[in-house]
Design a binder for these strands. Structure first.
Lengths: 219, 219
DNA sequence: AAATCAAAAACTGCATGCAAAATCGCGAGG
DNA sequence: CCTCGCGATTTTGCATGCAGTTTTTGATTT
């Protein structure tokens, strides 16, 4: 079990329902019927209500007083806003990392980048996606600011479903790696402005790829 | 009534208890006894529990399973992190504002700044604090990014109790106004990098003032 | 007098029940 | 045929009750 059963039912439910939403099992707009969920998870309505309220605070569900809570709908406009916000947060973390990473952290980032080079060579998309998470997580952590890092992690988690597709674009891996190279170099050499710019550029390109995908799909 | 009684008890309680915490009525570390709060607000424990869970998601209270929730303690280290995070968020909003404010929004920011000049002249501290909120709110809104704006607002709200004191430092008003001048100019003229730098500088100085105050108090 | 441990009190987590609001369905009217 | 309104059903919001855990208290021992 990934989730320890030491915590309360409410916490387990919040995690479970949250995963269901993020993985698409519960589609946006779905009504969250308390009674139904209670029955489904074999608990009473009370913990379900509390879990829903927790999820509402994270933005995953929308609370409408006296009416069913629903899985939050994400309009293309909101998605755009979220991508921009995440880009800015990542860029900020990169900037802070350039300024305040310890030598060990810089070394780790460099190592991770080199490891990813091998994955690009072997065209291991799944491995690259996984390693990419770590790469970015190292930069969050390097900012030495848990609040900004948490915000970035939360947004990334939220956007993940929309990002998966884009690594399959042909030639995406080598391009990502090249962008990472610039980001990593800037951070390791302590060039805050360059780190910020490189990360912003990187994330913007990812976003553009995504927007392109949806535009194609929508058209 | 400031809070409309259209919403649910839970929402009202969350707002009420949240205000009590932010205003210092409920000091950090205080145990949030469900039974006691229920009695105090003349409701049952259920809405109290849900309100507490909401507040936990905002970071105002800390949830400890099977034990009382407590008002979150803020260590100086956390405070420092929060100040940095807020500074970065504000700077980012300023940058985005410089890039994407509409002409009308730029005009409004300019007007607000000029209005604050008069308050500095008359040394109206309370008025300046109020107007200062608006000034910064205009910049949040000008970023055209509700997510970043919400994050900034939330952090500002959270830090507000620690910020109040610092406007009373002698000569703070004119200095703030001068810094605002540079921020405003950069945004209005569309200089993103300058807006970012000016805002970061502004907020850092505020933070330094605060750190100075606490250091004095602690010593 | 301080420390230890056990019993009692208090409190949280969860289930259940009830009243009010919202939704749905059906029939009347245009 | 469509729209509107009214009653029935569903569903939320909140209160209350019970079981298990934590905390407190008081007695006992060193």
């Amino acid at each position: 079990m990934t989730s320890s059963n030491k915590q309360t039912q409410t916490d387990k439910l919040a995690a479970e329902i949250g995963d269901a939403i993020l993985s698409g099992v519960l589609a946006p707009g779905t009504r969250l019927d308390e009674h139904g969920l209670a029955e489904q998870y074999a608990v009473s309505r009370t913990p379900v209500r509390e879990a829903i309220r927790s999820l509402a605070a994270t933005g995953l569900v929308e609370l409408r007083p006296r009416r069913s809570a629903v899985v939050a709908e994400i309009t293309p406009a909101q998605l755009e806003v979220m991508f921009v916000a995440m880009g800015e947060l990542e860029a900020t973390c990169a900037r802070l990392s350039a300024m305040s990473m310890t030598p060990i952290e810089r070394r780790r980032l460099q190592n991770q980048h080199e490891r990813m080079g091998a994955l690009v060579e072997s065209d291991d998309v799944a491995g690259f996606i996984e390693a990419n998470l770590t790469f970015h997580a190292l930069i969050y952590a390097g900012s030495h600011n848990g609040i900004l890092a948490d915000m970035a992690v939360g947004l990334r988690r939220r956007l993940d479903p929309y990002r998966r597709a884009q690594f399959r674009s042909p030639g995406r891996l080598p391009r990502s790696q090249a962008e990472h190279e610039r980001i990593m170099q800037a951070i390791v050499s302590g060039d805050a402005a360059a780190a910020h710019a490189a990360m912003l550029n990187h994330v913007s390109l990812v976003e553009d790829t995504f927007i392109g995908l949806t535009a194609t799909r929508a058209a």
